[in-house]
């Protein structure tokens, strides 16, 4: 983290103007923060508690945040109707491999965009950024047909490769690389290092915070993705866990406990990851916005 801190900011004397005086202001501030705090947490508490509540309990005490009695039938329902471990494995393979490839490809691309001068650089950068503006639904049909021609439907290649780079990651790496002093690679170049060596030995080791950020943000996005795995796969054995859990939604499904259990299960890995790596999540987002 220390690297990112130096790379990003922290100045000792920030505005402390008038902080002493306005007590009312402070009270107002903490009230605002307090309300926000509660508002941010309650839906998740309710979701987890709802996954343990029976239908009758939920209906009779809608104002209650906690179960009057605990039932596991939501979780049992999920366990019985899905090849749970297989989906879990798929999720980790899909999100994990794709993230690893994305980090590699994005950082390579960003290295060229941030550190090399060549004709067409701005065009490339604009094209990459432009892809951020394309809603996924717009390209779904042509992409599907393309994957068919490649024979990649319902395979891991089909799931992974089209998602193995992200414009956002390239952008983030580029911003980060531009903040690394140019003297470093100049020096390496004088020592006879080529681009690959500079990228791999000089830039990447300095870019650990950016790597962590891109990896974490990508993993989260991929983990949460529903439509992509649903469209690319045709057998339930290939689905990811969150996508598989949507199979419980349907026109006539009213069992809240099962739906909420599904939502809780798909959230748990992300929540655990967030708990342990929150500084990377947050530092990552923070870096993106700074020039």
């Amino acid at each position: 983290m220390s690297t990112s801190a130096t790379a990003t900011r922290t100045s000792p004397g920030r505005p402390r103007a008038g902080r002493a005086g306005l007590r009312a202001g402070a009270a107002l501030k903490w009230m605002y923060v307090g309300v926000g705090f509660v508002l941010a947490l309650i839906p998740f508490i309710w979701m987890v508690s709802g996954s343990f509540r029976s239908e009758a309990d939920l209906y009779q005490n809608p104002a209650s945040l906690f179960p009057t009695s605990i039932t596991l039938h939501g979780y049992i329902g999920v366990w019985q109707q899905l090849p749970f471990l297989r989906l879990l494995l798929n999720s980790f393979v899909f999100a994990g491999v794709t993230t690893a490839l994305t980090v590699l490809f994005d950082s390579m691309c960003a290295y060229a965009l941030a550190r090399l001068r060549f004709v067409g650089r701005n065009v490339c950068f604009v094209l990459v950024i432009a892809t951020l503006m394309v809603p996924f639904q717009v390209t779904l049909i042509p992409v599907f047909i393309q994957l068919f021609h490649l024979g990649w439907l319902n395979t891991y290649e089909g799931l992974i490769i089209p998602r193995a780079t992200s414009a956002f990651g390239i952008f983030l790496f580029r911003q980060f690389f531009m903040s690394i002093p140019a003297d470093l690679d100049e020096a390496a170049r004088i020592d006879g290092a080529g681009h690959w060596r500079i990228y791999w030995r000089v830039i990447m080791p300095l870019a650990k915070p950016a790597i962590a950020t891109v990896a974490i943000l990508n993993f989260t996005n991929l983990w949460n993705d529903l439509l992509w795995p649903l469209v690319i796969t045709s057998s339930n054995d290939m689905l990811t866990l969150p996508a598989g859990l949507t199979l419980f939604g349907g026109q006539h499904v009213t069992d809240h406990a099962v739906l909420l259990a599904g939502a809780t299960i798909s959230l748990v890995p992300i929540a655990i990851g967030f708990f342990f790596a929150q500084k990377y999540f947050i530092a990552g987002v923070a870096t993106t916005g700074l020039k």
């Binding site: 590699l104 490809f105 390579m108 060229a112 193995a164």
Partner: peptide, 10 residues
């Protein structure tokens, strides 16, 4: 080299 670096992503 720039194009090589960008090839996978592009």
């Amino acid at each position: 080299p720039a194009w090589l670096f960008m090839a996978p992503s592009l």
